[in-house]
Protein backbone atom coordinates (compact mmCIF):
# COMPACT_ATOMS: atom_id res chain seq x y z
CA UNK A 1 0.00 0.00 0.00
CA UNK A 2 2.63 2.51 1.09
CA UNK A 3 5.14 1.40 -1.49
CA UNK A 4 2.63 1.61 -4.32
CA UNK A 5 1.47 5.10 -3.37
CA UNK A 6 3.97 7.18 -5.39
CA UNK A 7 4.13 4.53 -8.14
CA UNK A 8 0.47 4.68 -9.17
CA UNK A 9 0.14 8.41 -9.92
CA UNK A 10 3.39 8.35 -11.88
CA UNK A 11 2.14 5.35 -13.87
CA UNK A 12 -1.13 7.20 -14.50
CA UNK A 13 0.64 10.30 -15.75
CA UNK A 14 2.92 8.24 -18.01
CA UNK A 15 -0.08 6.36 -19.43
CA UNK A 16 -1.88 9.64 -20.19
CA UNK A 17 1.20 10.98 -22.00
CA UNK A 18 1.43 7.68 -23.88
CA UNK A 19 -2.18 7.87 -25.06
CA UNK A 20 -1.72 11.51 -26.09
CA UNK A 21 1.43 10.65 -28.02
CA UNK A 22 -0.14 7.54 -29.59
CA UNK A 23 -3.21 9.50 -30.71
CA UNK A 24 -1.16 12.20 -32.45
CA UNK A 25 0.87 9.51 -34.25
CA UNK A 26 -1.98 7.15 -35.17
CA UNK A 27 -4.36 9.82 -36.42
CA UNK A 28 -1.60 11.95 -37.94
CA UNK A 29 -2.74 15.06 -36.11
CA UNK A 30 -0.81 18.15 -37.12
CA UNK A 31 1.14 19.96 -34.37
CA UNK A 32 -0.90 23.10 -35.07
CA UNK A 33 -3.98 21.34 -33.66
CA UNK A 34 -2.44 19.00 -31.15
CA UNK A 35 1.33 18.83 -30.78
CA UNK A 36 2.88 15.53 -29.69
CA UNK A 37 4.89 15.44 -26.44
CA UNK A 38 8.26 15.78 -28.29
CA UNK A 39 7.00 18.96 -30.03
CA UNK A 40 6.13 20.42 -26.64
CA UNK A 41 9.52 19.48 -25.22
CA UNK A 42 11.19 21.03 -28.27
CA UNK A 43 9.18 24.24 -27.79
CA UNK A 44 10.39 24.42 -24.21
CA UNK A 45 14.01 23.74 -25.13
CA UNK A 46 13.91 26.43 -27.82
CA UNK A 47 13.50 29.18 -25.20
CA UNK A 48 13.80 27.79 -21.66
CA UNK A 49 14.94 31.12 -20.21
CA UNK A 50 11.87 32.97 -21.46
CA UNK A 51 9.44 30.27 -20.26
CA UNK A 52 11.04 29.90 -16.84
CA UNK A 53 11.05 33.65 -16.42
CA UNK A 54 7.31 33.82 -17.20
CA UNK A 55 6.73 30.85 -14.88
CA UNK A 56 8.48 32.83 -12.19
CA UNK A 57 6.19 35.81 -12.83
CA UNK A 58 3.07 33.65 -12.54
CA UNK A 59 4.47 31.93 -9.46
CA UNK A 60 5.15 35.26 -7.79
CA UNK A 61 1.64 36.58 -8.47
CA UNK A 62 0.08 33.32 -7.30
CA UNK A 63 2.10 33.02 -4.10
CA UNK A 64 1.67 36.69 -3.21
CA UNK A 65 -2.08 36.59 -3.82
CA UNK A 66 -2.45 33.29 -1.97
CA UNK A 67 -0.34 34.47 0.96
CA UNK A 68 -2.38 37.65 1.30
CA UNK A 69 -5.58 35.61 1.02
CA UNK A 70 -4.43 33.36 3.87
CA UNK A 71 -3.69 36.33 6.13
CA UNK A 72 -6.86 38.19 5.22
CA UNK A 73 -9.04 35.07 5.25
CA UNK A 74 -7.90 33.99 8.72
CA UNK A 75 -8.34 37.52 10.02
CA UNK A 76 -11.87 37.81 8.62
CA UNK A 77 -12.87 34.37 9.92
CA UNK A 78 -11.48 35.03 13.39
CA UNK A 79 -13.24 38.40 13.54
CA UNK A 80 -16.57 37.10 12.30
CA UNK A 81 -16.63 34.14 14.68
CA UNK A 82 -15.89 36.39 17.65
CA UNK A 83 -19.62 36.82 18.15
CA UNK A 84 -22.59 34.68 17.19
CA UNK A 85 -24.57 37.71 16.00
CA UNK A 86 -21.78 38.93 13.74
CA UNK A 87 -21.35 35.45 12.34
CA UNK A 88 -25.04 35.07 11.50
CA UNK A 89 -25.15 38.50 9.89
CA UNK A 90 -21.99 37.97 7.86
CA UNK A 91 -22.53 34.47 6.52
CA UNK A 92 -25.22 35.32 3.89
CA UNK A 93 -23.10 38.25 2.67
CA UNK A 94 -20.13 35.93 2.32
CA UNK A 95 -22.13 33.32 0.45
CA UNK A 96 -23.46 36.00 -1.92
CA UNK A 97 -19.99 37.45 -2.52
CA UNK A 98 -18.58 33.98 -3.03
CA UNK A 99 -21.11 33.24 -5.76
CA UNK A 100 -19.98 36.27 -7.78
CA UNK A 101 -17.81 34.86 -10.59
CA UNK A 102 -14.58 36.60 -9.62
CA UNK A 103 -13.20 35.87 -13.09
CA UNK A 104 -15.65 38.41 -14.50
CA UNK A 105 -13.99 41.10 -12.39
CA UNK A 106 -10.61 40.64 -14.10
CA UNK A 107 -11.09 43.37 -16.76
CA UNK A 108 -12.39 45.78 -14.12
CA UNK A 109 -9.33 45.18 -11.98
CA UNK A 110 -7.17 46.36 -14.88
CA UNK A 111 -9.23 49.53 -15.05
CA UNK A 112 -8.87 50.08 -11.33
CA UNK A 113 -5.30 48.93 -10.76
CA UNK A 114 -3.48 49.38 -14.06
CA UNK A 115 -1.40 46.96 -16.11
CA UNK A 116 1.21 45.86 -13.60
CA UNK A 117 1.16 42.73 -11.46
CA UNK A 118 -1.25 44.33 -8.98
CA UNK A 119 -4.59 43.41 -10.64
CA UNK A 120 -3.31 39.85 -11.01
CA UNK A 121 -2.36 39.52 -7.34
CA UNK A 122 -5.71 41.01 -6.37
CA UNK A 123 -7.67 38.55 -8.52
CA UNK A 124 -5.80 35.62 -6.95
CA UNK A 125 -6.55 37.12 -3.55
CA UNK A 126 -10.26 37.50 -4.36
CA UNK A 127 -10.57 33.97 -5.64
CA UNK A 128 -8.67 32.41 -2.73
CA UNK A 129 -10.02 34.33 0.20
CA UNK A 130 -13.58 32.96 0.28
CA UNK A 131 -12.86 29.26 0.58
CA UNK A 132 -10.38 30.10 3.34
CA UNK A 133 -12.89 32.27 5.24
CA UNK A 134 -15.73 29.77 4.92
CA UNK A 135 -13.62 26.75 5.91
CA UNK A 136 -12.00 28.55 8.83
CA UNK A 137 -15.36 29.77 10.11
CA UNK A 138 -16.74 26.25 9.85
CA UNK A 139 -13.75 24.96 11.79
CA UNK A 140 -13.94 27.60 14.49
CA UNK A 141 -17.64 26.96 15.08
CA UNK A 142 -17.46 23.17 15.13
CA UNK A 143 -15.83 22.72 18.53
CA UNK A 144 -17.52 19.65 20.04
CA UNK A 145 -19.79 20.42 22.99
CA UNK A 146 -17.82 18.21 25.38
CA UNK A 147 -14.67 20.26 24.72
CA UNK A 148 -16.63 23.46 25.26
CA UNK A 149 -17.86 22.06 28.54
CA UNK A 150 -14.33 21.01 29.47
CA UNK A 151 -13.01 24.54 29.02
CA UNK A 152 -15.96 25.95 30.91
CA UNK A 153 -15.48 23.58 33.81
CA UNK A 154 -11.80 24.56 33.95
CA UNK A 155 -12.88 28.23 34.05
CA UNK A 156 -10.70 28.88 31.02
CA UNK A 157 -10.69 32.47 29.75
CA UNK A 158 -12.08 33.20 26.30
CA UNK A 159 -8.52 33.66 25.07
CA UNK A 160 -7.34 30.34 26.53
CA UNK A 161 -10.32 28.54 25.03
CA UNK A 162 -9.54 30.09 21.68
CA UNK A 163 -5.85 29.35 21.63
CA UNK A 164 -5.82 25.98 23.35
CA UNK A 165 -9.02 24.45 21.99
CA UNK A 166 -10.98 26.24 19.27
CA UNK A 167 -8.10 27.26 17.00
CA UNK A 168 -6.26 23.93 16.97
CA UNK A 169 -9.60 22.15 16.53
CA UNK A 170 -10.26 24.30 13.44
CA UNK A 171 -6.89 23.61 11.78
CA UNK A 172 -7.88 20.52 9.77
CA UNK A 173 -10.79 22.46 8.26
CA UNK A 174 -8.55 25.48 7.65
CA UNK A 175 -6.32 23.23 5.60
CA UNK A 176 -9.27 21.90 3.63
CA UNK A 177 -9.96 25.53 2.70
CA UNK A 178 -6.30 26.16 1.90
CA UNK A 179 -6.21 23.19 -0.47
CA UNK A 180 -9.30 24.42 -2.32
CA UNK A 181 -7.84 27.94 -2.44
CA UNK A 182 -4.42 26.91 -3.71
CA UNK A 183 -6.01 24.94 -6.53
CA UNK A 184 -7.91 28.07 -7.55
CA UNK A 185 -4.92 30.38 -7.12
CA UNK A 186 -3.12 29.47 -10.33
CA UNK A 187 -6.41 29.66 -12.25
CA UNK A 188 -6.89 33.19 -10.91
CA UNK A 189 -3.41 34.24 -11.95
CA UNK A 190 -3.83 32.83 -15.46
CA UNK A 191 -7.24 34.42 -15.98
CA UNK A 192 -5.79 37.77 -14.95
CA UNK A 193 -2.84 37.30 -17.30
CA UNK A 194 -5.10 36.37 -20.20
CA UNK A 195 -7.24 39.47 -19.76
CA UNK A 196 -4.09 41.56 -19.42
CA UNK A 197 -1.32 39.72 -21.27
CA UNK A 198 1.62 41.78 -20.09
CA UNK A 199 3.49 38.87 -18.58
CA UNK A 200 3.30 35.40 -17.05
CA UNK A 201 2.39 32.05 -18.54
CA UNK A 202 -1.17 33.21 -19.31
CA UNK A 203 0.33 35.85 -21.56
CA UNK A 204 2.51 33.18 -23.22
CA UNK A 205 -0.64 31.18 -24.04
CA UNK A 206 -2.38 34.27 -25.52
CA UNK A 207 0.63 35.41 -27.57
CA UNK A 208 1.51 31.92 -28.87
CA UNK A 209 -2.13 31.43 -29.84
CA UNK A 210 -2.05 34.62 -31.88
CA UNK A 211 1.06 33.40 -33.71
CA UNK A 212 -0.31 29.85 -34.13
CA UNK A 213 2.57 28.44 -32.09
CA UNK A 214 0.51 25.66 -30.49
CA UNK A 215 3.53 23.70 -29.13
CA UNK A 216 4.63 26.82 -27.21
CA UNK A 217 1.10 27.26 -25.81
CA UNK A 218 1.19 23.63 -24.71
CA UNK A 219 4.57 24.08 -23.08
CA UNK A 220 3.10 26.96 -21.08
CA UNK A 221 0.04 24.92 -20.12
CA UNK A 222 2.21 22.01 -18.98
CA UNK A 223 4.26 24.41 -16.86
CA UNK A 224 1.04 25.78 -15.35
CA UNK A 225 -0.14 22.29 -14.48
CA UNK A 226 3.21 21.48 -12.87
CA UNK A 227 3.15 24.76 -10.95
CA UNK A 228 -0.37 24.17 -9.67
CA UNK A 229 0.39 20.59 -8.65
CA UNK A 230 3.58 21.59 -6.88
CA UNK A 231 1.82 24.31 -4.90
CA UNK A 232 -0.98 21.92 -3.93
CA UNK A 233 1.43 19.33 -2.61
CA UNK A 234 3.36 22.01 -0.79
CA UNK A 235 0.19 22.85 1.14
CA UNK A 236 -0.39 19.13 1.76
CA UNK A 237 3.17 18.83 3.09
CA UNK A 238 2.66 21.77 5.47
CA UNK A 239 -0.63 20.20 6.59
CA UNK A 240 1.07 16.89 7.39
CA UNK A 241 3.70 18.76 9.34
CA UNK A 242 1.30 20.95 11.35
CA UNK A 243 -1.70 18.66 11.86
CA UNK A 244 -0.44 15.09 11.67
CA UNK A 245 -3.30 14.07 13.97
CA UNK A 246 -6.00 15.21 11.54
CA UNK A 247 -5.61 12.31 9.12
CA UNK A 248 -5.40 9.87 11.98
CA UNK A 249 -8.73 10.88 13.49
CA UNK A 250 -10.44 11.25 10.13
CA UNK A 251 -9.35 7.77 9.02
Amino acid sequence: MNASRPVLPVAGALAAIGIWWGATAVFGIRPLFLPAPPDVVAAFRAQPGYLLCETGATLLETVTGFGLAVLLGLLIAVTLTASRTLERAALPVLVALNSVPKVAVAPLLVVWLGFGPRPKVVLVLLICVFPIVVATMAGLTSTPSELGELSRSLSASAWQTYVKIRLPWALPQVFTGLKVAVSLAVIGAVVAEISNPSGGLGAVVVLSGMSFDTPLAFAAIVLLALLSTALFYLVVAVERLLVPWARAIAG
Binding site: E146, L147, E149, L150, L154, K164, P168, A248, I249
Partner: peptide, 29 residues
Protein backbone atom coordinates in the same frame (compact mmCIF):
# COMPACT_ATOMS: atom_id res chain seq x y z
CA UNK B 1 -11.56 24.57 41.05
CA UNK B 2 -12.03 21.89 43.72
CA UNK B 3 -15.04 20.28 42.03
CA UNK B 4 -14.08 18.33 38.92
CA UNK B 5 -16.47 16.79 36.41
CA UNK B 6 -15.41 13.83 34.32
CA UNK B 7 -17.50 13.62 31.18
CA UNK B 8 -18.96 10.46 29.70
CA UNK B 9 -16.69 10.97 26.67
CA UNK B 10 -12.93 11.17 27.27
CA UNK B 11 -13.01 14.64 25.60
CA UNK B 12 -9.27 14.58 24.97
CA UNK B 13 -7.56 17.08 22.69
CA UNK B 14 -6.44 15.03 19.67
CA UNK B 15 -3.34 17.16 19.06
CA UNK B 16 -1.98 16.63 22.56
CA UNK B 17 -0.23 13.56 23.89
CA UNK B 18 -1.56 11.70 26.92
CA UNK B 19 0.77 13.71 29.13
CA UNK B 20 -0.15 16.95 27.36
CA UNK B 21 -3.84 16.26 27.93
CA UNK B 22 -3.28 15.62 31.63
CA UNK B 23 -1.36 18.91 31.80
CA UNK B 24 -4.19 20.97 30.25
CA UNK B 25 -5.86 21.94 33.55
CA UNK B 26 -2.44 22.85 34.98
CA UNK B 27 -1.79 25.21 32.07
CA UNK B 28 -5.25 26.74 32.14
CA UNK B 29 -5.18 27.28 35.88
Amino acid sequence: ADVVLMHQLPALLPWRTALGNVMLPVEIR
